[in-house]
Amino acid sequence: MGIYFKTYFFLSVLLFSGISFENVCISNSDDKKAVVNILKKSNSYYQGKNKFQLNTTYKIYATKSSKQVKDSFKGLFACNNDRTYAKINQTEFIISSDLSLKIDNESKLIQFSKNELDKDLKVYDLEKYCSYYNGFKLTETEKEWICTLTTAAFSFVPYSKVVIYINKANYNVSKQILYIISAVEYKDSDGKMKIDYPRLEIEFDNLKTVIDNENVFNIDSYILLKNGKYYPSKKYNTYKVID
């Protein structure tokens, strides 16, 4: 995959197999209210946990309907009270109440800010989507709610359609499908350049209330303050610190 194609998806972000059931559509007039209510309950489910982590898997497809994965990478999301950690491929984010970090492990750069670098970092906070979309559809299987949000062809949001799968048993999110609103150039299997509207699928699993490594939340693990200036820690001594 070309660097531009991969980078486009990375900047834009921010399944359990089972028996297949026929989708049942709920009354259209009630869909928006129902979708907003389900996403709000899902948000509350995660906010009710002071400490948790989950694994994420990102899969990139060249078109809206393609079944061939162009690229994929793993991630991790964790919360510990007022601190948040996320890893997406080779980039890490740490957000605390007084300082935020973005660590680019490929470029060996650590960016710090006294403001939140990314207020949309929380992968479970999907209720925010409702403010940007005007089309709402709710379907369901035996085990999941499927919330579909759509917008007009010309819009300032990065996704023309968002599909969110939510577990009925506890309202945790199992999957998101994001349909990119802008066309992106890519190479097909024959090496020919093509342009199409791609999609990104994000799967969430292995949710647990025990953090594997709580050191990831510690700002001092990455940078140290000396004489009013931030420097990389010993572990990151080859990295450059920027603001």
Rank of each mutant, 00 (worst) to 15 (best):
D118S: 14
C130T: 14
S131F: 10
F136S: 06
N172E: 14
K114D: 15
S97T: 04
E142S: 14
F156C: 12
T150H: 04
Q111E: 13
A152F: 05
S113D: 09
S174T: 10
T151I: 14
K87I: 03
E116T: 08
N89D: 07
Y171D: 10
Q176V: 14
I164H: 05
D118W: 03
T148M: 12
R83C: 05
T139A: 09
K87V: 09
D98F: 08
N115E: 12
K143E: 12
F154M: 12
E106M: 10
N167F: 02
N172D: 14
N115I: 08
K128N: 15
L121E: 01
L101F: 01
S174F: 05
G135H: 08
D98Y: 10
V162D: 11
F112D: 02
D98R: 12
E116R: 09
D118M: 07
Y85M: 00
K168H: 11
T141H: 07
T150L: 04
N172S: 15
D120Y: 15
Y124A: 02
T91K: 11
D82A: 15
T91E: 06
S113N: 11
Y165C: 01
S97K: 07
R83Y: 03
E140V: 15
D118I: 06
L126H: 08
A153T: 09
E140W: 03
K114Q: 07
L138Y: 06
G135N: 06
N134P: 10
S160C: 11
Y132R: 09
E116Q: 12
Q90I: 05
N170C: 06
T150V: 01
S97R: 09
E144F: 11
E127K: 15
L149P: 00
D98A: 10
P158M: 01
D125N: 10
C147Y: 00
K119N: 12
L138F: 14
I164A: 01
F136H: 08
T141Y: 05
K137L: 04
S160M: 04
Q176H: 05
I103C: 00
C130H: 11
I95D: 11
L126P: 00
D118E: 15
G135Q: 15
I166T: 13
A86S: 07
Y133Q: 02
F112T: 05
Y159Q: 04
Y85W: 06
T141A: 13
S174C: 06
Y159D: 13
S155D: 15
S97F: 03
S107P: 01
I94C: 03
D82F: 07
S107I: 00
A86D: 06
K87F: 14
K102I: 01
L117T: 03
L121F: 14
I88K: 07
E140G: 03
K114E: 11
Q90A: 08
K175C: 06
L117W: 03
G135C: 08
